[in-house]
């Protein structure tokens, strides 16, 4: 009897370790975000003119429910980063910012949507520095998964 004890404990371990996970379904899927479709804006290396107004457009999807999205446009005058669009844009020489554009906004997506085309209005004042900029877009779902994409753009006169 006594010699059986260790085997019993071992058996208990194996059983608990292998017991199945009958939990609720977990959301393991990240949302997606892309500008790579007809009408997506801006595209990699796109040139935007000062003084104009543009509509940023991107498609976001999720398997369950989208939650929020954000946009962050900042200068890349120091070449500190690059985008993930696969294109290599011609960068202007490194320079010091004087009055660079800083555009940061975030928005909620109401209504447990699984798909949406987001639209953000972007005004480019005449006074901002021209040059290389970086446009970072991201989206979250209601679980807390976050997906980013970024696009190198150029603001010209």
């Amino acid at each position: 009897m006594k010699f059986l004890k260790p085997y019993f404990i071992l058996w208990l371990m194996v059983v608990t370790a292998c017991s199945t996970d009958n939990d609720i379904d977990k959301d393991l899927d990240k949302p997606t975000i892309t500008v790579n479709y007809d009408g997506g804006f801006p595209q990699g290396c796109e040139q935007l003119q000062r003084g104009n107004t543009y509509i940023i457009k991107a498609k976001v999807t999720d398997n369950l429910a989208l939650a929020s999205y954000s946009i962050d446009i900042h200068n890349n005058f120091d070449h500190h980063t690059h985008d993930d669009q696969g294109k290599i844009c011609d960068l202007e020489p490194i320079k010091t910012p004087v009055n660079p554009l800083i555009f940061k906004e975030n928005f909620k997506i109401e209504g447990n949507l699984k798909e949406q085309e987001i639209e953000i209005e972007l005004n480019l004042p005449e006074s901002i520095d021209t040059g290389d900029y970086h446009c970072a877009l991201s989206v979250t779902d209601q679980t807390g998964w976050n997906t980013r994409t970024s696009i190198d753009i150029k603001i010209v006169e």
Binding site: A67, S68, D72, Q142, G144
Partner: peptide
């Protein structure tokens, strides 16, 4: 969370 902060996004 599924939110972005308002100062840095």
């Amino acid at each position: 969370t599924s939110n972005y902060d308002n100062s840095e996004n």
